[in-house]
Amino acid sequence: MGWRFQRNKKYPIGGLRGPRRSAGRKIGEHAAGSGWFRIVPATDPDPFYLVRSGRADAVLVAPPGGLTWALSRGKGQAQLLVDATNAIKGRVIESYMNAILRRTIADENHNSETVPPSLSFDVRVLYNPTLQTSAYLVPGVMGLILCLVTILLASMSMARERELGTFETLLAAPVERWEIFLGKTLPFMILGMADVPLLVGLGVAGFHVPLRGPLWALFLAAGVFVGTTVCVGTLISTFAKNQQQAMMGGFSFSFRPSNYPGVMAPIENIPGPSPPFLGQPLRFFVSLTRQVMLKGTIGPFYWTNLGALAFLGMLGRQRQCPSVPANWRDPKEFAIKKISLAIIHIICYI
């Protein structure tokens, strides 16, 4: 039997393997009773897989024969696997689980917590053994820089064309709308993608962030992310009357999510319901970067986040190239854009 814990009744923080109606069960009840964890049945017998796939942030592995048997014999060794891609979260899980385990063992021994435990407890910190905060923060900063560069450039560039009046000339030229859109977005996608090796190189060489996963996965995630942010940038530009408005729109879109959990702080801190497939583009990209760089795995988590990013990009792509060139907007097209941006904003701030 296996157990999984999630904090705030939302996200996995710990895991436990052991027989039902045993000491393991009591640990689970203590953990759930603390209000910090949620217990979910484990779907895979491999404890490492549970952490690697992101299903659990920690797994407690019982000694051979189970916890109850080890406690009755008075010796044994339990192991706690902690996902420390976020060093702060890793430390919190470790200290909470330590306290819960000590209390459970004391209860099992019908003794006080001051008596030395009969079970040794081994904590194994995965992916970030030295618990460096830079391993968590650097991918967040990387995503933020990419987001800012692409959204601001794309939104301001299109707004500049409108402001100068050159957009009307482009629309009147014998070129298709998609050609204009591609011409206005492709340079920023190339610029954004050119930043990726620089940022990754700096993170690895300057901040010693490990790069465990394949580079193609990182570049694929970056490509989809840059495409999404460029689309969002051009969508913002359709609402902006001038470059200043486009810049403010780009900043508000980039900075508000950056302060949100999931980018620079753990996502578990989000109050209220947070559907797992929703969130701002930055959150998805940063999760992908951490998954690839720190865990080095590509699984359902990777593809789900990539799909969510692509979906947001498709929403952002919604008719950014207007047929109306000047200061007047076609009500139907404007309404479609408004709805698209509203959906993106709702998704981003849920």
């Binding site: 100068l164 050159t166 060139p325």
Partner: peptide, 16 residues
């Protein structure tokens, strides 16, 4: 017909 029509908009339409 579009390739045969040239249009010069009212608003300044050149890159400064």
């Amino acid at each position: 017909a579009r390739p045969l029509i040239a249009y010069m908009p009212q608003q300044q339409s050149l890159y400064p």
